[in-house]
Amino acid sequence: MKHNIAEVAALQPDYLGFIFYKKSPRFYDAEEIPKLPAAIKKVGVFVDEKISKVIELTRKHALDVIQLHGNEDKEYVLDLQRNLVLCHPDILIWKVFSVADNFNFNQLAVFENKVDAFLFDTKGKEKGGNGYVFNWELLKAYSSQKPFILSGGIGLEEIETLKEIQKTDLPIYAIDVNSKFEDKPGLKDILALKKFIAEREKK
């Protein structure tokens, strides 16, 4: 695992995610996160976790981003912010929303001024890593200027569609890749990631 993290880090992604959800096959339970280049931000992924535990792991691993992947409501986010301001005032909070065949973007309103970005993932039986994309046509209804991360089953076959959607005025902040680039849960296929990066850079 440590070697694989180093190989991924060598590809210089903007962010590396670590899942702190015990029910996930990608649960990260190592004592520490290997030292990463300063330019790579560490994202801690949490699912309806106790705020005290989120704070504990944020401090322990010097996280840069907290990704909330559960049913956390606005009161949870506000409580989390109150706790973070004392020890980690610069940390970012991303709120995840699972998208199925349709999606009501009005539900984002209560989080608009409380989180730094949204993340849209595919709704499935798991909290993430379900391996297939949702209907990106739904994003045409996104009217906010809040940046968002596009996630959910993105693989090599989505590259051309990604290039097209990133030509629009949607505020796509980042692309999250996961299960389509794994040899097994939590272990990334480095050659596939290299190919993805190379193809994305082609005009």
Results as ranks from 00 to 15, higher is better:
residue 2 K to V: 12
residue 3 H to L: 12
residue 5 I to Y: 02
residue 6 A to M: 13
residue 7 E to W: 02
residue 7 E to I: 02
residue 12 Q to C: 12
residue 15 Y to P: 01
residue 19 I to E: 01
residue 22 K to H: 15
residue 23 K to H: 11
residue 23 K to P: 03
residue 23 K to T: 11
residue 24 S to K: 03
residue 26 R to S: 08
residue 26 R to M: 06
residue 30 A to E: 14
residue 31 E to M: 07
residue 33 I to V: 09
residue 33 I to S: 13
residue 35 K to A: 13
residue 37 P to L: 08
residue 39 A to C: 11
residue 40 I to W: 09
residue 40 I to L: 06
residue 41 K to H: 08
residue 41 K to V: 04
residue 42 K to M: 09
residue 42 K to Q: 12
residue 43 V to G: 00
residue 44 G to L: 07
residue 44 G to C: 07
residue 47 V to D: 08
residue 48 D to F: 04
residue 49 E to H: 05
residue 52 S to M: 10
residue 52 S to E: 15
residue 53 K to A: 14
residue 59 R to S: 14
residue 59 R to P: 01
residue 63 L to D: 08
residue 64 D to I: 10
residue 64 D to N: 15
residue 70 G to I: 05
residue 71 N to P: 02
residue 72 E to M: 09
residue 74 K to A: 15
residue 76 Y to V: 12
residue 76 Y to K: 01
residue 76 Y to F: 14
residue 77 V to I: 15
residue 77 V to N: 07
residue 77 V to M: 05
residue 80 L to A: 06
residue 81 Q to P: 02
residue 81 Q to H: 06
residue 81 Q to K: 15
residue 82 R to S: 15
residue 85 V to K: 15
residue 85 V to L: 10
residue 85 V to R: 14
residue 87 C to L: 12
residue 90 D to V: 13
residue 90 D to N: 15
residue 91 I to G: 09
residue 94 W to H: 05
residue 98 S to A: 15
residue 99 V to D: 00
residue 100 A to Q: 10
residue 101 D to R: 11
residue 102 N to W: 02
residue 107 Q to F: 01
residue 108 L to P: 03
residue 109 A to E: 12
residue 111 F to H: 06
residue 113 N to G: 10
residue 113 N to S: 13
residue 114 K to M: 11
residue 115 V to G: 07
residue 118 F to P: 00
residue 119 L to P: 04
residue 120 F to N: 03
residue 122 T to E: 00
residue 124 G to C: 07
residue 127 K to Q: 10
residue 128 G to F: 02
residue 129 G to M: 02
residue 130 N to R: 07
residue 131 G to L: 06
residue 131 G to N: 07
residue 132 Y to M: 06
residue 138 L to W: 04
residue 139 L to Y: 00
residue 141 A to H: 12
residue 142 Y to P: 04
residue 143 S to V: 08
residue 143 S to G: 10
residue 143 S to N: 05
residue 143 S to W: 00
residue 144 S to M: 13
residue 144 S to T: 05
residue 145 Q to D: 15
residue 145 Q to Y: 08
residue 146 K to S: 07
residue 147 P to L: 01
residue 148 F to S: 02
residue 148 F to K: 03
residue 154 I to V: 02
residue 154 I to T: 01
residue 155 G to M: 06
residue 156 L to T: 00
residue 157 E to K: 07
residue 160 E to W: 01
residue 160 E to G: 05
residue 161 T to R: 13
residue 164 E to R: 12
residue 166 Q to G: 02
residue 168 T to P: 14
residue 169 D to M: 08
residue 171 P to G: 11
residue 173 Y to E: 09
residue 174 A to H: 07
residue 177 V to M: 03
residue 183 D to N: 15
residue 183 D to M: 13
residue 184 K to A: 12
residue 184 K to L: 10
residue 184 K to E: 14
residue 185 P to A: 10
residue 186 G to Q: 06
residue 187 L to V: 12
residue 190 I to S: 08
residue 190 I to V: 13
residue 191 L to W: 05
residue 191 L to A: 15
residue 192 A to K: 12
residue 192 A to Q: 06
residue 193 L to D: 06
residue 193 L to A: 05
residue 193 L to S: 09
residue 194 K to F: 04
residue 195 K to S: 12
residue 196 F to V: 00
residue 197 I to A: 05
residue 199 E to Q: 12
residue 199 E to I: 03
residue 200 R to T: 03
residue 201 E to K: 14
residue 202 K to C: 00
